[in-house]
Amino acid sequence: MNILVCIKQVPDTNEIKIDPVTNTLIRAGVPSIVNPFDGYALEAAARIKDNDPDTKIVVMSMGPAQAEDALRECLAIAADKAYLVTDRAFGGSDTLATSYILKSAIEYVESWEGKFDLIFCGKQATDGDTAQVGPEIAEHLGYSQITYALEVQQASAEGIQVLREADDCNQVIASDCPCVVTFTKPSFDPRFPTIKRKMAARKATINQITAGDIPGIDLTRAGLKGSPTKVKTSFVPPRKEGGVMIQAETPEEIAAKLFESLNGVHVI
């Protein structure tokens, strides 16, 4: 079986700090990591491969040159081959443009890797948090999709069966292949890379794909030009004020005041 895992390198949001003077995000010095949800997608692919060693896992990322580090991490964990889709022309893409570029790169790579039976993604990237690229790739390719996957129960070139997280329950859902599956956090953690794989990953070649490589790609659908959504402005959310003691005569009044306060900050 051929599995493609799409990954993104993101800043470690646990380490993000706000500059108190300019009120903007401090990006310098923030470590970059593989988007954790993509890590769950890769782990799902690795588990399929544990059961079926003939499985080929290819990882692909659209990003700047430094995204190579993230791809190498994936090689060290479980991937067999890595592709970096990178070009100035792709910069500034929103999710629609990004998914179009990835779809074009995927079709290009398939011409020698063979068709991918499954395309795995993390459900969302922790910087953009949109959760749109996965389903949009599925739409561009015309594939079926399963989102919010927790774990893969069965997988073969004929079809996939997945445990999925729904509103208030879990579902077991099946689809034929090819299928795009986006993953959320399961009950298990992704595996550690082994030293042998790490050393091999350090020496591995990461194949770069630029705009010029992809035959027939329509660059008006890439970058800022190809992005229907635009950022008008961004701001740091106002800091919470210090603790407030809620006081009133009766428990009912206290409860009402508390409810109003919580409602005021959109919590309930």
Partner: peptide
């Protein structure tokens, strides 16, 4: 932005080649 909404929303926006903004507050 329920699991179903976030599942189908981007498929529709992509099919219509338009922009979708997720998880708005």
């Amino acid at each position: 932005a329920t699991p179903n909404g976030r599942d189908v929303g981007p498929r529709v926006s992509c099919r219509l080649q338009t922009g979708l903004t997720a998880d708005c507050t």
